[in-house]
């Protein structure tokens, strides 16, 4: 069974601090990591290979620095690593990102494509299902586990609001995987050393089967019109009020923050 895992390099957003005065994000010093959902997805792919044979390929679209997560994947034992990098890909929203990735995936053999459910920077959870649509594959989202049910189908456990569903999906297919579902393995010292002798394939636009108008900024229907931070946090002035008035104040706060 051949699996391709789409992995993304992201800033570790749990390490992001807000400037106490301006309330803006401080990005300096924030480490870049492999997106947590993708790490779990990669683990799932490696487990499928252990059980059923075949290969695992990782692919990422990003700048040169994104090689770091490909090296990490090689150290974990993947067979093949591809960096998609071209100025034409830049400025992409999720639709354009999915078009680029799908264009590259068309040139590769696979039975299963795995993506993370959601990247912790863009936070949209849209790229996986969009790739599935471009490649005309069935999709299963919010996946925690998967195993081969018959030679032609996977049995998948997925998380939904009320509990867990079991879903059978025909191969080839695309899964979006949740972090925490499978415990990712650690890199071995040997793996790390060997990773440096393995090749990272560099693919530019010429290797991707996609219309130029469907990728990059030009292929992106959405634009970030403006962005702003939550604002600086000052110590609040605690208020002493009768019970119902205190409740009014809390409810107003929750409404303002869209919590209720």
């Amino acid at each position: 069974m051949n699996t391709i895992v789409c992995i993304k390099q992201v800033p570790d957003t749990t390490e992001i601090k807000l400037d106490p005065v301006t309330g803006t994000m401080i990005r300096e010093g924030v480490p870049s990591i492999m997106n947590p959902d993708d790490r779990s997805g990669l683990e799932l792919a490696l487990q499928l290979r252990e059980r059923h044979g075949g290969t695992v390929t990782v692919i990422t679209m990003g700048p040169r620095q994104a090689e770091a997560i490909l090296r990490e994947a090689l150290a974990l034992g993947v067979d093949r690593a591809i960096l998609l990098s071209d100025r034409k890909f830049a400025g992409a929203d999720t639709l354009a990102t999915s078009n680029t990735l799908a264009g590259a995936l068309r040139a590769l053999p696979f039975d299963v494509i795995i993506t993370g459910r959601q990247a912790i920077d863009g936070d949209t959870a849209q790229v996986g299902p969009q790739i599935a649509e471009h490649l005309d594959l069935p999709q299963v989202t919010y996946v925690e586990r998967a195993s081969l049910e018959t030679p032609a189908a996977l049995r998948v456990r997925r998380a939904v609001e009320e509990g867990h569903q079991t879903v059978e999906v025909d191969l080839p297919c695309l899964l979006t995987v949740l972090a925490g579902a499978v415990e990712p393995r650690y890199m071995s010292v040997r793996g790390i050393i060997e990773a440096y002798n393995k090749e990272i394939e560099q693919w530019d636009y010429s290797r991707v089967t996609v219309d130029e108008r469907a990728i990059g900024l030009a292929g992106s229907p959405t634009r970030v019109f403006k962005s702003f931070s939550r604002g600086a946090k000052n110590a609040c002035e605690p208020r002493e009020l009768p019970v119902e008035e205190a409740v009014d104040l809390i409810l107003a706060g929750l409404r303002e923050k869209f919590i209720i």
Binding site: T94, D123, T124, Q126
Partner: peptide, 25 residues
């Protein structure tokens, strides 16, 4: 929801239009 976020991206790609995720406003 898990349904909306499964369906919407699939549909946006089929319609070739933009999709904004998990809006609060």
């Amino acid at each position: 929801t898990t349904i909306g976020r499964d369906l919407a991206p699939r549909l946006s790609a089929r319609l070739a239009t933009g999709l904004t995720a998990d809006c609060t406003g």
